[in-house]
Amino acid sequence: MTNTLRTPAADPAAAAEFFAAELAFEADPDDVVRDLEAGATAGFRLVETRSPEAFARVRIPGAINLPHWEIDETTTAGWDRDLVYVCYCESFQCNAATKGALKLSRLGFKVKRLAGGITTWQASGYPVEGEGAVAGLHGISCDC
C-alpha cells in the first residue's frame, strides 16, 4: 500500500461537504485581487488583524486595520453587519487572522480568512501599499 493511500479517501459526499465548508471559511487571494481590480468590492471588506506598525509597513490596498486584540463591541460599533469581513495577517504561520475572525464571528459578523495572508498575496505579485511597499521592501512580519 502507498503512503498516499494508507488512510483511505473520504466518501465523496463527506468530501463534498468538507470542501464546501472550507470554501465558506476562506477567501482565495486570486479571487480577492480580481474583485479589487474590477472594483467589485460590494459585499466584503478586508481587515488587517496585525499591529498598526505592520499595517503601516505593508498592506493590501483598501484594507482597514483592526488588530485582533482590539476587536470588541466598541471597536466594531457601526460596522455593517451585511458585509463579509475578510481577515488577513502575515501568513499560514500566523494566526492573527484566525483570532480576528473568531472574535468577529462571536460578535455576530460574517467572516472569512484570506488564505496565506499578505505573504502569499505579495509572493503572487499582487499590489500592496505602505512604507515598505514604496521602498520596495517586503516589510512583512507577524507582529501580532
Results as ranks from 00 to 15, higher is better:
76 T>Y: 02
33 V>S: 06
6 R>M: 12
73 E>I: 12
114 L>T: 06
9 A>I: 15
33 V>H: 10
54 A>H: 04
92 F>T: 14
115 A>P: 01
40 A>S: 11
58 V>F: 08
48 E>D: 15
68 H>T: 09
38 A>E: 07
89 C>S: 09
127 P>E: 03
24 A>I: 07
100 G>W: 01
3 N>T: 10
10 A>L: 14
100 G>N: 01
87 C>N: 08
27 A>I: 06
3 N>L: 10
116 G>T: 09
65 N>V: 08
46 L>E: 03
65 N>W: 09
15 A>W: 13
53 E>A: 15
131 E>G: 04
114 L>V: 07
18 F>M: 04
80 D>S: 02
6 R>W: 11
10 A>S: 10
2 T>N: 13
75 T>D: 05
68 H>Y: 15
75 T>L: 05
122 Q>H: 13
141 S>Y: 15
56 A>I: 07
57 R>C: 15
84 V>K: 00
3 N>I: 09
78 G>T: 09
137 L>D: 13
77 A>W: 05
124 S>W: 05
49 T>I: 06
72 D>A: 09
61 P>A: 03
103 K>F: 04
22 E>A: 11
101 A>V: 02
47 V>K: 03
35 D>W: 15
40 A>G: 06
116 G>S: 05
39 G>P: 08
108 G>E: 09
127 P>V: 01
99 K>L: 14
1 M>S: 14
92 F>V: 15
55 F>G: 03
77 A>D: 11
99 K>Y: 12
76 T>K: 05
62 G>M: 03
1 M>T: 14
44 F>Q: 00
12 P>W: 04
75 T>R: 03
100 G>Y: 01
18 F>H: 05
88 Y>E: 06
47 V>T: 02
89 C>H: 08
92 F>Q: 13
78 G>E: 03
139 G>M: 08
115 A>H: 09
59 R>G: 08
122 Q>Y: 12
109 F>G: 00
23 L>W: 07
142 C>I: 12
21 A>S: 10
69 W>I: 13
122 Q>M: 11
40 A>E: 12
141 S>V: 10
139 G>P: 02
119 T>Q: 11
116 G>E: 10
62 G>R: 03
53 E>T: 13
